[in-house]
Design a protein around this nucleic acid. Sequence first.
DNA 1: TTATTGATCAGCT
DNA 2: GCTGATCAATAAA
Length: 229
Amino acid sequence: MGSGQLSSAPLPRSFFDRPSHEVAPDLLGRVLVHGSVAVRLTEVEAYGGPGEDPAAHTYRGKTPRNAVMFGPPGHIYVYFTYGMHFCANLVCLPEGSGSAVLLRAGEVVEGVAEARARRSSGRPVPDRDLARGPARLAVALGLLREHNGLDAVLDGSPAGRPHQSATVLAGRPADPATIRSGPRTGVSTAKETPWRFWIDGDPTVSPYRAHVPRRRNAAATSVGEAPKS
DNA sequence: TTATTGATCAGCT
DNA sequence: GCTGATCAATAAA
């Protein structure tokens, strides 16, 4: 299995010092290692900086939550969403730019048993679903709030064990001919920006869901309006 | 101050 | 296909 992919070198910090929409497709096929679990990235999304990307967390400037996105490139931005999920990003561009790449899906290539054990569902989870979706990917890798800001680039990596905490390895970059792009998932603005990138035909790519406004609660339907359906 | 929406997923119908 | 779980940021009042 994939131990060969773990022998590849960590990516240098300069890899991330580019616009996120250039970094994103180049991340496909790369391997993110955290502890004993490694994931080969098959689907990512780019997010831009303040004032330029309405879908980005940094669109309206720096807040305590998104501060890591304004830090140096190559660090991991972990955020909590929908009241229950964590998602992981890799910060791009020079410090202060506020842009990143959301890691949407991948294939667990090391530590499958560990990744499966982290899923609380109790029911059997097929291998291909272990990191299929951004929150699932974060769970598989064990990335939590406490890992927000973690450096995913090792400068002067210790010989022998180059990935003590979290590292992006070069892996085998995806064949450019197999890379597809399209609108980002679940995003209500900037739909025309095709900044979602994935490896065509890979079974671990998450199904695309267009943005659907959440239905209002019962109060809105109680008076005068019959509930739909 | 309160209300609403969201870079989601699992479980159920 | 639809629903609930329920945090954080923003919009509305």
